[in-house]
């Protein structure tokens, strides 16, 4: 049975009818056209689908869309509303990504980390992004980019 939900998506109100068994990831991508969260595993194992729920990173592939009724969701599209963030600029300068498929999830997770802990050390960065799988880069350029931002502010 469809239910109407209301939530904030990247700062804008959204009203949409969903089935209780629809996943947040699918609703964002297929019904709301927000494509930055990616489908990598669908089981919470890879982090490619990460979005912020009230500022905290979650895996939208194991979240029911109906659960976010009344909540605030931020995706990569929302982070860069006022232009690229320092973190994004740093990723760019470090050529942090290769295929780029993990980039949106990685950026969400790293953004949460820097919001919570603006000056993490290398191990804290590794801990924070450990749930975001990247098959291409070996992580080094991603970590260097995050550390660079943490040193700047």
């Amino acid at each position: 049975m469809k239910k109407e939900i209301n939530f904030t998506l990247n700062g804008n109100p959204v009203k949409i009818e969903v089935m209780p068994n629809e996943k947040l990831l699918d609703v964002l991508r297929d019904r709301l056209g927000v494509k930055s969260p990616k489908h990598g595993c669908g089981r919470g194992e890879c982090g490619a689908c990460s979005v912020l729920l009230n500022g905290k990173s979650i895996r939208s592939c194991i979240t029911l869309a109906i659960e976010v009724d009344g909540q605030e969701i931020t995706t990569l599209e929302g982070l860069e509303k006022n232009g690229m963030t320092e973190l994004q600029k740093s990723f760019l300068q470090h050529n942090s990504f290769q295929c780029g498929f993990c980039a949106p999830g990685m950026t969400i997770t790293a953004t949460e980390l820097l919001n919570k802990n603006p000056h993490p050390d290398e191990e804290e960065v590794r801990e924070a992004i450990a749930g975001n799988l990247c098959r291409c880069t070996g992580y080094q350029n991603i970590i260097d980019a995050i550390l660079d931002v943490s040193k700047k502010e």
Partner: peptide, 21 residues
């Protein structure tokens, strides 16, 4: 050099097949 596909990938604008409408 900064890779030429860098910006698209960093902003989430890069389209993978599943992102096409």
């Amino acid at each position: 050099a900064v890779r030429i596909d860098g910006l698209e990938k960093i902003t989430g604008a890069a389209k993978y097949t599943d992102d096409l409408d």
